[in-house]
Nucleic acid binder design. Sequence first.
DNA 1: TTCTTTAGTTCGTATGTTTCGAACTATGGG
DNA 2: CCCATAGTTCGAAACATACGAACTAAAGAA
Lengths: 126, 126
Amino acid sequence: MRPLTHPSIEDITVEGILHALSDPVRAAIYAQLACAERANTCSAFLQVEDRSIPKSTLSQHFRALREAGLVRSERHGVEMLNTTRCGEIEQRFPGLLPAILKAHSIQSAGRPKPSRRKAAAKPKAG
Amino acid sequence: MRPLTHPSIEDITVEGILHALSDPVRAAIYAQLACAERANTCSAFLQVEDRSIPKSTLSQHFRALREAGLVRSERHGVEMLNTTRCGEIEQRFPGLLPAILKAHSIQSAGRPKPSRRKAAAKPKAG
DNA sequence: TTCTTTAGTTCGTATGTTTCGAACTATGGG
DNA sequence: CCCATAGTTCGAAACATACGAACTAAAGAA
């Protein structure tokens, strides 16, 4: 088992950040971590946005967030504690993460509820 | 041949935007369109960031940008004219696109030249 | 109209990425 | 040592992407 690598701040790329956050599950995880008071375990996210995420998939999502430089993970006993690296990233790319988080919150505010509805088709696409 | 569909503004998603711009070629195209005075054709981007993009690949990239709602494409005679929809998107997600473009420009400013160098490995990844 | 050129799209295939269950590793407690 | 808990890795199926070959669409020339 390889020992959890984190990119150093200058190896973090915009493309990597955008790709990591372009997945709705990872975006939700990151948003929740970003406004959390203290570190969260992985399994705190087995339920995200009203759907169940299998443990192995969740592990891949955390790896993606780690390798994009968005979160830092540390083993504490039997569990992993995850925190965002938003301070560092704010220094390198000022305003980027706040803008993305804000856009996400605008988007979820515009949707009535996380119930199953089919996005109402696209009426006028011209 | 299907007749070029554009999503209406309320169907544009943050995930879609981030995914579209997480590709370096599309990000470069978008950045160039964003600061262009007038509309650009597709083939203006057959050379992007010192590499050649095949025509068919370029066509897919433009489709991705269109379907994410980032650009609007119109046929003018034999060519396609592309413009960004940044005004609309600024209304829906204020600050998002400027922050991403700024981050991209910070990133390219930090890189010495677009010559082939292997990113100098990762020294301290802990 | 038909031929030709230019600009972009679609198709097919090879290659890469993502998902998820099964099996595994790592740590702490009895 | 044995067991439980928390995460990781493996492997196969499903999905996405890249690009050459073949195509369509518009405009101009003959």
